[in-house]
Design a protein around this nucleic acid. Structure first.
Lengths: 189, 189
DNA sequence: TAGTGTTTACCGTGCGGCAGGTAGGTTTAA
DNA sequence: TTAAACCTACCTGCCGCACGGTAAACACTA
């Protein structure tokens, strides 16, 4: 494995366990069998290491899903696809928690990039809902709030999910889809 | 105002703005027009100050709602009542974010108490849903996951809600209730 | 293929700064 | 007179980060 990847993995693990602020660079270095200076050879600063982790998570997990979802023309199918994949990521491993929980600690320059990605996610969901409303499929509720409800539902997963019992992951995503889809679609009165 | 309350409010504000780890005691003291030692006269440690804040939030915001909700015998009404009040708290001010976002930094002794409260919230929602399923009102989905969906939806609010535009708070809670209730109830087929 | 630069991947050390927390003295109010 | 409320000054420890090396790998000539 490449050193950069080793660093990335180790730091990721430690940030997850103890939080960014409570993980000194010396600790990460020790875990890698490296000196602190050795670690600084690969990363110019602690913050840049955090950014790399978050950015990598985005690039490998979230962006591909966004790209794939955008190709689906039917808004309902697009929404279902996205929700399923999104909650799958959440149950895969807890690492993506860093992307949310520690993003606030990035410097403006970096946090800007991260926020852009969040924005895209939000827009995708919101637009899908709006389209469903336009075609009469969905109720006339606030698509903004509904979109946040969807994201919140999924993102909250890593605050409680038991990652040692992943066999329930599929049931989880299906439950979320069920609630959200039925929650926004027009019912037969 | 009592000194303890002043400290509580000031620390609360700063923790919210900059996070617990990035707010030194000296900063809190300065903001209060106090010396650091003066602040330590009132609190034995930084962690105990954090606990007091979180515990106070629980006691004043969450517990009363739980107590009141428990009195409602009809599960659907109980659920609606709880969700409405819960999301109202979230939109009132951002302070309750501390209770979630920083709870992990408490020492075991304190975090135990906080977790018990979360447990009660979860149980209330889950039980209400189970009762609705038993009476045939709700679909046979996992009440555990559905309960987490409800909590996540609401709790996520403070990651995005614009607290300068509170006039939308009511629409928010109604949207959430709408989605969740329709999401779990049996539809006419 | 020996000789010569050059880059890469590290190490040991240390510094400046600030954090949480304390010892011990002083003011204030009842 | 006494206890609570506060202050100044300080300790200790750690943290991010920089500096100046070194040894090995690599690249390029002649």
């Amino acid at each position: 494995m490449e050193t950069k990847e080793k660093i990335y993995r180790t730091a990721s693990k430690l940030f997850l366990e103890q939080g960014y602020d409570n993980t000194p660079m010396s600790h990460i270095a020790r875990e890698l069998g490296l000196s602190k200076a050795g670690l600084y050879h690969h990363y110019p600063s602690k913050e840049s290491l955090l950014f790399d982790i978050i950015d990598y998570l985005n690039e490998t997990n979230f962006i591909p899903i966004l790209k794939e979802a955008e190709k689906i023309s039917d808004p309902e199918k697009r929404l279902i696809f996205f929700l399923r994949r999104y909650s799958e990521i959440m149950t895969m491993d807890a690492s993506s928690r860093i992307a949310v929980h520690e993003a606030g600690k990035l410097k403006p320059h970096h946090s800007k990039i991260v926020k852009q990605n969040w924005r895209k996610t939000f827009t995708l969901i919101k637009d899908a809902m709006s389209e469903m409303q336009a075609s009469g499929k969905a109720k006339e509720i606030s698509s903004t709030f509904a979109a946040f409800a969807a994201i919140g539902m999924c993102s909250w997963t890593y605050y409680w999910f038991d990652y040692s019992r992943k066999e329930s992951a599929e049931e989880l995503s299906e439950t979320f889809i069920e609630i959200l889809l039925r929650g926004i679609t027009k019912g037969k009165e």
